[in-house]
Amino acid sequence: MIKEVEVSIYGAEQICASCVNLPSSKDTYEWLQAAIGRKFPDQKFSIHYYDIFHPPVDEEKNAFCKKIIEEDLFYPIVVIEGEIIGEGNPRLKTIYAEFEKYGYVSM
C-alpha cells in the first residue's frame, strides 16, 4: 500500500502582486484537487488550503504562513509532504512527478 500523500496549498483571497492574470489561490486549490483525482483515480491523497492571512492553529503551518508573508514568496504555494513543489503558477507535470515518487500510478 502506498503512503497517502499530503498536499498543502498556501495562498490568500487577494492575488499575489506578481501573479496578476493568474487564477486565485482558492481556484488553484480546487483545480489541483480535481486534476490530481483524475490523474490518480482510486488512490487516496489529502489536500488542504491555508489562507496565509488567517493561518491555522497548527504551529508548523502557522510558521510557514508567516514565512510566506515575510519573505514575499509568490503564492499560491504548493507543498507536498513538507517540500515546496510550486510557487505562483504551479505546473501539473511537476506535481504529478512528485506523486509518482511516492508510488502513485497514473491511469
Rank of each mutant, 00 (worst) to 15 (best):
I15E: 03
P41V: 03
K61P: 01
E83C: 03
L73W: 14
G11R: 13
N62W: 02
P23T: 07
L22D: 01
S106N: 05
Y49M: 09
A63N: 15
C16E: 03
K39W: 03
F99P: 02
H54G: 00
Q33M: 11
P55L: 08
V105R: 15
K101P: 00
F53R: 11
A35L: 13
D42S: 11
A63C: 03
T28C: 15
I52A: 03
K44M: 11
Q43T: 02
V105P: 00
S25G: 15
G103S: 11
F64T: 01
K61H: 13
G86E: 04
W31D: 11
H48N: 14
G88Y: 02
F74L: 14
R38S: 12
Y49D: 05
E6K: 15
Y104P: 05
K26D: 02
S25E: 06
S46L: 12
C19W: 03
H48C: 07
W31N: 13
E30P: 00
I36M: 09
K61L: 12
E30Y: 12
F45Q: 12
H54M: 08
V105A: 15
F40M: 13
P56H: 04
G103A: 10
F99A: 09
Y10V: 05
Y29V: 02
I95E: 05
M107F: 11
W31V: 01
E83P: 01
M107N: 14
V78N: 01
G86Y: 08
F99W: 07
V57H: 11
I77K: 07
K61F: 01
E70I: 00
K67N: 06
Y50K: 08
P56K: 09
N21K: 12
E6A: 14
I36P: 04
K39C: 11
Y96S: 02
E4C: 04
F53E: 09
K67E: 14
I77E: 10
T28Y: 07
I68P: 00
I47S: 09
Y49R: 11
V57F: 11
Y29P: 04
Y29D: 04
E4Y: 00
S46K: 15
D58G: 01
D58R: 09
F45I: 09
Y49C: 08
P23H: 11
D42Q: 14
S106V: 02
S8R: 14
K44N: 14
Y75E: 01
F99Y: 08
I95H: 07
V7D: 10
A97G: 10
